[in-house]
Design a protein around this nucleic acid. Structure first.
Lengths: 339, 339
DNA sequence: GAAACAAATGAAATCGTTTTCATATTCATA
DNA sequence: TATGAATATGAAAACGATTTCATTTGTTTC
């Protein structure tokens, strides 16, 4: 394993000059530069990153916190974040909190021990006051998830609007009994969607019916379960808003299996615009989230914060959501996504 | 940012003793140990990982190479690998090669620069002779993907058998014109499945028809495209083997949209046993892959190799695959997964 | 009571870089 | 032809830990 010292010896130069060549500093003669590059090539020399990290006080690694990566929303977020990070010369460490506050706090030590230069939180499992102390060790940027108390940059989507347009769409189809279905008790994303949901209802002079609320639906199986629960109600809803396409797909799957028609017996709207929305029959009306842009922005911001070293600024960057109308809400007549 | 020196000063002890406390060395009196722990607490001291990495020549980070994480097979693999790595005290860096040999080689430098202690390759984009030189810098373990030339530990699934049982199942249903559909030209996984496919055919005295082969199918859209191509053939196949549930779902979706019946007009078998296989109508017959076990084993192996420092040993660990029979191949009669 | 050994501690070297500071040379300018 | 600036180079300190080696003290053992 060749070190900078070996290159220095081979060329008869000092470590300093070798370092200058590596870092493209000026004030190295063309002659010596060539000599050094040849020696590096010959020795197969490459700078040791731990040594650079120690000396430069920077690892070029970012940590991305997510609950679990098998949720397609988060895998898309990871994909986009990794690509954006690579563009800036950063590696990405994945931290799956699995919805555990302890795991989250534990992973936070990556910042304290300087193993990463910054943390992107796409999921929050602790109170902000638990996380805030880590801000003294490096930047934290919220991405997708958010917290009003958090005095850090936040890149997010307009979830209130998302809940609103999806619900309004159902109301426009004439529905008055609309169930609400979401996942993540702790999540402000879910809370915001609920606000948008209620806002749409109230514009139509309807009140929120707590019997129609299911706040523990994450997966396909949850969707199936929720469907059965809804059908067990005395006064059944005719439409349902869900916080994820998987749950929507689960509801549709179970409904069809039970002999119900979608959307005639139950209109279903999903969230995320995942691939399955075009696979099911009927296809699923959903809300598209600009994940790539959000991830790109989050990385841009955190890279900037790492440079400027100002971590405790509350800046909010919000991206819009878009309703995609498909067959699960509008029957067999011709339909198309909104512009 | 407190350093070990600060703790030493505060306690009036030497750095050596502080280090001993951190690393649970014997030969520290209980009295001093307490003193040190208190001081560490008071200063909020935590060891700097770059310094430790440099001194210990080990980063406690693993790199996992995958083509892209949004493929559910790979997100499941990442999930399992991250969890297994965490159990061993390792962090996981995600490297998405996006099927590019250049990106792959570039990420390989993580090993050379000592930014990671080892590399798990779940995808291979280069010839082994391109990758082999990196073995002098640290362990490489193949996981899922494999290469007969590679003199490294390999954890894989019996893909020949996978292709075989899926195809045999179609043959047992009476099909004789079976199309073959896969992704990844370079992949030995795909090649193995093709061998299994052919083996099953030959047992039924059938020959492989190259007109029925589609080797560029990765996604849902590819499935749709492949379906149209198949239907454009003069002598249409009555069944199709696919290398991924997404492709199978795409084929089914397009088939239904064109008015065909599944499995009556076309029997479809997928691969991976992803969630969508139970969402589509009909549900999809597929091959289950024990991803968790494979990931766990790969991590166990690489951790061991890091310790023993013997990297160039060709050991093969193979896990079995399992056929899951669903509605896309056996019509409406009652069916169940094989035991 | 001396020799041998175990327990507890610290000084200094080490890991492999980058940076500061000093020095030497060349070159243009007044 | 001094003078100051620009260019080119190196010695040594620094980053923050761990480890080797030495030293001191206390405890057995013959």
């Amino acid at each position: 394993m060749a070190t900078i010292e070996d290159v220095a010896k081979l060329t008869g130069l000092s470590r300093t000059t070798i370092s200058r060549v590596i870092n493209n500093h000026p004030y190295v003669s063309e002659e010596k530069r060539k000599l050094v590059l040849e020696a590096m090539e010959k020795l197969g020399y490459v700078p040791n990153s731990s040594a650079r990290s120690l000396r430069n006080q920077k690892t070029s690694i970012l940590a991305l916190f997510i609950p679990r990566i098998t949720n397609p929303f988060f895998s898309e977020l990871v994909e986009a974040t990794e690509i954006a990070a690579a563009e800036h010369g950063y590696q990405l460490i994945i931290c799956q909190t699995r919805y555990s506050p302890e795991k989250e706090l534990n992973y936070m030590n990556l910042l304290k021990t300087k193993q990463v230069d910054g943390v992107i939180l796409a999921s929050i499992q602790n109170e902000w006051k638990q996380l805030k102390p880590f801000l003294q060790y490096g930047p934290i940027v919220l991405c997708n998830e958010f917290d009003d108390c958090a005095n850090v940059p936040t890149v997010r989507l307009d979830q209130v609007y998302g809940g609103y347009i999806a619900t309004k769409h159902l109301l426009e189809q004439g529905h008055t009994k609309i169930a609400y279905c979401s996942g993540g008790y702790r999540s402000n994303v879910a809370k915001s969607r609920e606000i948008g949901f209620k806002k749409a209802l109230s514009e139509y002079k309807l009140t929120f019916d707590e019997r129609y609320a299911f706040r523990d639906a994450f997966h396909i199986a949850d969707g199936k379960r929720v469907f059965r629960k809804m059908m067990a109600l005395s006064d059944r809803p005719t439409a349902v808003f869900t916080g994820s396409d998987e749950v929507a797909a689960g509801i549709i799957s179970e409904a069809l299996a039970c002999g119900y028609r979608i959307p005639e017996d139950l209109a279903v709207v999903g969230f995320d615009n995942q691939a399955i929305t075009e696979l099911t029959n009927p296809t699923i009306t959903t809300v598209h989230q600009p994940i790539k842009q959000m991830a790109q922005k989050a990385v841009d911001i955190i890279v900037e914060k790492i440079q400027t070293k100002k971590y405790d600024v509350q800046e909010i960057y919000e991206f819009p959501l878009q309703l995609i109308v498909r067959a699960s809400t509008v029957g067999s007549r011709f339909h198309e996504s909104e512009a």
